[in-house]
Simulated assay, not measured.
Amino acid sequence: MSAERDIKFTAADFRRLRQMLYQRVGIALNDSKSHMAYSRLVKRVRQLGMRQFSDYLDLLDSNVDEEEWQHFVNALTTNLTAFFREPHHFDLLRLHALERAGQDRVYRVWSAAVSTGEEAYSIAITLLSLPQLNRKRLELVASDIDTRVLSHAADGIYDADRAKALDEAQLKRFFLRGVGRNAGKIRVRRDVRDQLSFYQFNLIAAQWPDMGRFDVIFCRNVLIYFDKPTQAAILQHFATCLQPDGLLFLGHSENIQHLCDAFQSCGRTAYRLVNPAVRG
């Protein structure tokens, strides 16, 4: 490890940190992530007055501070997102929703790794733009393991330059522009924010709560952080959470065809449920 580091961080510390993160949230850091782990956690270690990472890891292992565990997870999870990222998914979402617009039931969508919220609000904008879809028959759920980004998502406040994928009509209908000291900011309108429910959720939890069945699940650029057995387990959970013929959207570098036979490809990183799982 670098001799310039003022906080001692050994190869053994990194191995231990990796194992702790994997056991807690299923994320498998590879060997190249040592510097990233150090840089994201070192400020917290300093704040606690510690001179070596092993003391911080001992604190976590003592299991006396759940809030500290959440800080640890928040620091080491990656949150890269944007409005209408991978726009072909939203085209498929629009078609899928229109096909079901006449059904006498609620249309349900889950953003399972919502990060700072851009994905969830892109879903909301897509569906609320459809006159055929009754707002009262629309349920949008968003979750993440990281409590910090969930708070950001629920607030719905963004720098205006993050909205480049939105046209002027969307900005006018779904956002408020900041003025004065909030100039350069935009905020999702309250009626749109109220359409969403935000929850903390750990995708590797042994038992998932019964959330009912969704028509669509977004879980993009998340599975890449898990090993193959964990990926397969999450996919089986998703299969129990989808309506027959429901859609699952994944990230551009994720391929599940050899992990789970419940889904069939129906577009670029888009999958349709063809073999519904039976609830236990």
Rank of each mutant, 00 (worst) to 15 (best):
R16T: 13
K172L: 12
F174E: 08
R135L: 01
R100P: 00
L133A: 00
D215S: 02
R15W: 02
L57K: 03
L80T: 14
R18M: 07
Q207N: 13
G117I: 06
R148Y: 14
A239V: 00
D261G: 08
A153R: 08
H89K: 11
V73I: 15
R85Y: 11
D191E: 11
R190L: 11
A12C: 04
N275T: 06
L250N: 06
P87M: 04
E168D: 14
S34F: 10
T77N: 06
R135I: 04
G102R: 10
N134Q: 12
K33G: 06
V106S: 07
S32V: 06
D161F: 13
M50E: 10
Q19F: 11
T126H: 05
S34P: 02
Q231V: 00
L176D: 09
T78R: 07
T230H: 00
Q132G: 00
W110N: 03
D161T: 14
E67Q: 15
R105F: 07
S111H: 06
L250Q: 07
I256D: 00
A262I: 02
V114I: 04
R16K: 14
L196C: 09
C241Q: 15
L130E: 10
P87T: 10
G102S: 11
D146F: 10
L196K: 05
V42L: 04
P209N: 09
Y121M: 07
T10F: 07
R181L: 10
D210P: 02
R5V: 08
Q200T: 14
L29H: 04
P209A: 09
L98C: 03
L166K: 05
A124G: 08
L248K: 09
V45R: 01
R268M: 12
G156S: 08
W110Q: 01
A12E: 15
D159E: 15
N63P: 00
E99M: 12
Q70D: 14
N202A: 11
Q170K: 12
Q257R: 12
Y158K: 04
I204D: 01
L98F: 02
F218G: 00
L59N: 01
D61S: 12
A169Q: 12
K164F: 12
R108D: 06
F14T: 07
R94M: 10
L128I: 04
Q264A: 15
Q207D: 13
D6I: 14
N202F: 12
L138Y: 04
T77C: 10
Q195T: 09
P131E: 01
R16M: 10
M20K: 10
T10H: 07
V42N: 09
F201E: 05
S197I: 09
G102K: 11
G267R: 01
D6H: 13
S115R: 08
Y56R: 06
W69S: 05
V222D: 04
H252A: 15
Q23H: 13
N79Y: 08
F175P: 00
D159M: 10
V106G: 03
A11Y: 10
R16I: 07
R15N: 11
L140Q: 02
L166F: 07
V274Q: 00
Q207S: 13
L133G: 00
G251I: 08
A232V: 06
D144V: 13
L176H: 06
D215K: 03
E4H: 11
T116R: 08
L48G: 09
H88N: 12
L60F: 02
T269C: 14
R177I: 11
G212K: 02
I234Q: 03
Y271K: 04
D13H: 09
L127H: 02
